[in-house]
Design a protein around this nucleic acid. Structure first.
Lengths: 325, 325
DNA sequence: GTGAAAGCGCTAACAC
DNA sequence: GTGTTAGCGCTTTCAC
């Protein structure tokens, strides 16, 4: 592997001059510049970016932390982050945690080791305090709501979005409303539960815990839930499913187990994924790709100017009306 | 940012000793080892991995080059690569090309700049010669068939897989067989065309070019094709669609435009994605996740032992029978 | 057992 | 305009 010293020698100049040519500095005579460029060409020399990162203290890389990579939810965010990162010439390092706190810590740790300039987290399992402590080493952006200072956040108002979904169903005369979420313990699931309680109480309706289905993430989960509903004595007549893939599973399961949609079961999905368009699924678009884009730009701004304080960005959602309600 | 020198000073030892402790070398007295570890703890010091990479000449990172990141095909490969990389403590750098040759070249270039130890490519647009030239800087694995020396390859026998799909349809009495592919110019599409021609000719059937649909990648493409088929005077009675999402689009479109499946249109998908299970779609599983896993391990082996010659790995496919045929 | 010192490949004062 | 030189943070001979 040829290095700058050899180039300098071969061109009969100092390494400084080579460095100047490389970095398009002024004050290099035209003939030397040409000579150096020629030698660089001949050797197809390219500077070692490790060395440059070491000096500059920057890697132009951001770590993207997510629990797993086989779900369209995360793909949408990845796509958004990548799109923006590409524009600014940044790289994205994928960091899969499988919800393992040690793994998550290790990735956060890359901030301290300067392997990445910053971190975007889509799946926090560690306590906020620990995130805070790492934030000294570089900008951290989380894709969920937080009050924590020092942490930038890009998030959907899950409470509000859920309320509007339920209200949409209430407005259309549905009173037996249930919902499906992923991990019950997540902050967004808790916000949704509050939204559910409050909106139903306000409408004078009772809350049935049997109509709340947790651990509904993949298509197969949705299918199982459709089966359960088909067998219930007192089934819900409408369902909000947080994730279009799972919602698609419910639709397909409903078909299998003889439930007509939307007559016997109305469904609202989440995320406006391609599959929802295909199935004519009414869905709440929380604009995941935009969340990814904004997350990157929040990281980017603080990376350029470390004096910047953390920012919080609320991303608006939209209810896309189709024919599953 | 505290460094090794400060730790050494604070512990009253040399940097060498600190380094030895860090790297679990023998020949460090127990008391010094403890003293150093304590100081490291106190300062929550972590070595700068840029510096280590610079010295070792290794980054423990592999670049994963793909055209775009919003398609389940690539997600399956990503998941496979990540799974294996995680096991060996490697990182994955996502490199999106959008089929742009300059972009692709730039990523290959990271090999020369030592930003990554190797590269896995899922989407070659540059000529083989250019890939070859970069292979001097580190192991390159491509996820397609190639004879090129120096390039490792993990691939499906697309010709064979397609033949078996067509034969499956022939065996069930279908004679009006068509197919959908993504980019017509890709090597796999060409192999499929040969498979199509040869298998049909062998069966004494004619090839209708109107039954070949290119640019069928997303769900919406599939829907459009279903529409076209519904409007054809002489429509195919069976279709192989290379990609389950697109195949799902065809199914949904068929439903919309009044084609019964499989009576009026039989469909075989590709990749055995979750959606195919949901829709009871018969599909050819080319085991994408395994392709990703093997691609990483091929990279890994050569990265450890650069004297190793390039390897080629054929990944077997499986036809998964469900009810769309 | 331990430390001094060279050096990985590069940039950026600082001199000339 | 150009070159010398001192690091960036670490590992690794090579003495002692």
């Amino acid at each position: 592997m040829v290095n700058i010293k050899q180039i300098a020698k071969q061109a009969g100049v100092s390494v400084t001059t080579v460095s100047r040519v490389l970095n398009h500095h002024p004050y290099v005579s035209e003939d030397k510049r040409l000579r150096v460029q020629q030698v660089i060409e001949q050797n197809s020399y390219t500077p070692n970016s490790q060395a440059i990162s070491l000096i500059r203290g920057k890697t132009r890389t951001v770590g993207l932390i997510l629990p797993f990579s086989h779900h369209p939810y995360y793909h949408a965010i990845i796509a958004g982050v990548m799109e923006e990162a590409y524009q600014y010439g940044y790289h994205v390092l994928l960091c899969q945690t499988s919800y393992n706190p040690d793994q998550e810590r290790e990735y956060l740790h890359m901030l301290s080791t300067r392997q990445v300039d910053g971190v975007i987290s889509c799946s926090r399992v560690l306590p906020w305090a620990e995130f805070q402590s790492y934030s000294e080493s570089g900008p951290i952006v989380v894709c969920e709501y937080t009050e924590e200072s020092n942490l930038s956040a890009v998030y959907t108002d899950h409470y509000d979005a859920f309320c509007s979904g339920i209200q949409y169903l209430l407005d259309r005369g549905y009173t037996r409303i249930g919902y499906c979420v992923g991990r019950k313990t997540s902050a967004s699931s808790q916000a949704r539960f509050r939204a559910y309680q409050n909106t139903l109480h306000a409408a004078g309706l009772e809350v049935y815990s049997e109509w709340i289905f947790p651990d509904c993430i993949h298509m197969s989960d949705g299918e199982q839930i459709a089966k359960q509903i088909a067998e219930m004595d007192k089934p819900p007549s409408a369902l909000i499913v947080t994730g279009d893939e799972a919602a698609a599973g419910v639709m397909l399961g409903a078909r299998q187990y003889g439930l007509r949609i939307p007559d016997q079961l109305a469904i609202i999905g989440y995320d406006n994924q391609p599959i929802s368009a295909g199935l004519q699924l009414t869905t709440i678009d929380q604009n995941l790709q935009e969340i990814g884009r904004q997350a990157f730009s929040l990281f980017y701004e603080r990376s350029l100017d470390p004096t910047l304080t953390s920012a919080k960005r609320l991303i608006p959602y939209t209810l896309i009306e189709r024919s599953s309600v």
